[in-house]
Nucleic acid binder design. Structure first.
Lengths: 340, 340
DNA sequence: TTGTAAGCGTTATCAG
DNA sequence: CTGATAACGCTTACAA
């Protein structure tokens, strides 16, 4: 006689107990759950009742061991820079958890263990312990080592942010350049002819794409563009506002950067708004509504992105044919008093 | 002959293969991993080498099934109100994942499925499927139904935020009242004698405690307090600033509320800062550094909270004696130009 | 100290 | 459509 595992607590019902209660065999219960069409209606009802009454749910570990499916996907949390916090992290995670839940998957959160903070090692651990069916990666950079690694490992994955041309195109992303082009058109329609731009750093692909979109669209419309160099802050904006041919509008790569512009505009004795200097942000964080005037911003389709990622990821998991191109989704411009 | 489960991919090594490679039995390999002291040094080394060479890691599902330990804790994500987003959610999660990782646990994220959005049902599902060893709850309210439920279920849990006096005291929290008392003393030391207060809503226990701390400390110091009613915004602050006996400082319950005060102060033609109207926030979000002047704020000890929660949670999981009182942790006042 | 045997709860196969 | 049997990979008692 061996000693069973430490019963966690309240002896949860097993499939055996349900079978006994319903007067059928274990396998019939299993069939009711996994292949209901192979069970007679009458039996199905009887078993279902027993399941409900006993509050039975299959033990996920046993199920995973036997079937190979973990019903869990891993999300590698970006080791984020406190100086450049990703403002959508929380909102995206929620959307991801919901999208996963809709498809019967749970989300296992993991991070590289400090101090090494090696994402590749963290991935290896999770995969070796067979804890997940696949991975979702975010904040993907060009030539991201994480992508190269999971691709080589053959682990199903999907990324928020584009992968390199050599890698599998299992990604979803917003159209950063188009998003900014829409901003420019919005400002142009309000009569602005010279527009400033404040980004963060070209090293982040999404920031680079926004700047490129800004430049391309201003050129296309024959507007005058005044992009500030990477890492510029309030001081640079003020200088631009003091100079000749002052911009009447500013587009920015994030809501926090827009706040810098607000401060600069006021410091120069000007007003933020269509009558003074129009300003736009990015991400549509809660900050936008607390500003005076409220900030026009770009809202991301986080739920659609999460759904797209899950579809691509589970396609791989189930061995279906997966698209060979990424999924690019449009953003939504939320116009508020800062620009319109 | 039955058909094995769908081999996920790259045939990961099993304990059997390691045993063969090292010339020992399965159980010895298991002992090396779970009870190294019972293995001869020489054998231990030989087995360890084989483990390393084969890149072996135990299958977590098999391990869980047999031992009963899931090595995973569930985090119930608050169904947060987009109008009052919890600004620490992202930072807390990171701290929690790190604290869990240090103790060999992973974090499974889950949310009540829309549209019912019933947290109790979500908990039941996770527990019934035996996917976690315990739960971490956050944003706990007085008489929170989630707490009552997990306590009745007997599931190990720990909460960020205090539980009611009738419930197990498995919580960690900051000292909200003391935090605000420190703010008041800071302002008093800078010479302020009449101080305004802007909170969000008394219905959130942490907000109520902050307000109470503000009121108690101003009274204790013999200062004049001007607390605004729940839900007040910029308009109410402006009115206060226009009235007789204008406050020279404002304490607030969050950084976003502090932003409302900034706007009001400026709208009245005054300046934010020690010379004009001093302002303080709460949470020390990235926003603080982007404001002009930078915002004095209260920083939360998120890592200590996460560590405390994990300690209490795993204590229960392992059947150890657990403290009968909650864990209250101090905050840190980060003084910036908005007040000093 | 090491090996033998059993079984965790589930699902897949296959015979009735 | 249902039921017996085996196996997933691992850990735990117990015997050698």
């Amino acid at each position: 006689m061996t000693e069973g595992p430490r019963r966690s607590r309240s002896g949860a019902a097993t499939i055996e107990e349900v079978a006994r209660a319903a007067g059928v065999s274990r396998q019939t219960v299993s069939n009711v759950l996994n292949a209901p069409h192979r069970v007679r209606t009458e039996t199905l009802e009887r078993v279902s009742t027993a399941i409900r009454e006993l509050g039975y749910q299959p033990d996920q570990s046993a199920r995973s061991l036997r079937s190979g499916a973990r019903r869990t996907i891993g999300y590698l949390a970006p080791v984020d820079d406190p100086l450049d916090p990703n403002p959508l992290m929380a909102g995206f995670l929620e959307a991801l958890v919901d999208a996963a839940g809709e498809r019967g998957q749970r989300v296992l959160l993991f991070r590289p263990a400090p101090p090494a903070a090696d994402p590749v090692a963290a991935i290896d651990e999770l995969v070796a312990a067979r804890q997940v069916d696949g991975l979702v990666l975010a904040d993907v950079l060009t030539d991201d080592p994480r992508i190269a690694h999971v691709a080589r490992l053959g682990v199903p994955f999907a990324s928020f942010g584009r992968t390199g041309p050599e890698e599998p195109q299992h990604w979803a992303d917003i159209a950063n350049d188009t998003a900014m082009a829409v901003v420019v058109r919005h400002l142009a329609a309000r009569g602005h002819r010279r527009i400033g731009y404040l980004g963060a750093t070209e090293e982040l692909p999404w920031m680079a794409a926004r700047r490129a979109g800004f430049l391309a669209e201003t050129r296309r419309l024959g507007l005058s563009a005044a992009p500030l160099p990477d890492g510029s802050g309030t001081a640079a904006v003020r200088e631009l506002l003091r100079g000749p041919d002052r911009p009447t509008a500013f587009a920015t790569g994030s809501d926090l950067l827009a706040l810098d512009v607000y401060e600069a505009v006021r410091a120069e004795g000007l007003a933020v708004g269509p009558a003074g200097v129009a300003v736009t942000g990015f991400y549509d964080t809660p900050l936008c509504r607390h500003l005076h005037p409220p900030l026009t911003s770009v809202r991301l389709p986080l739920r659609a992105i999460a759904a797209g990622l899950m579809a691509r990821l589970l396609g791989q998991v189930h061995g279906e044919a997966v698209p060979t191109t990424g999924l690019e989704l449009p953003t939504e411009l939320v116009v508020r008093a800062s620009s319109g």
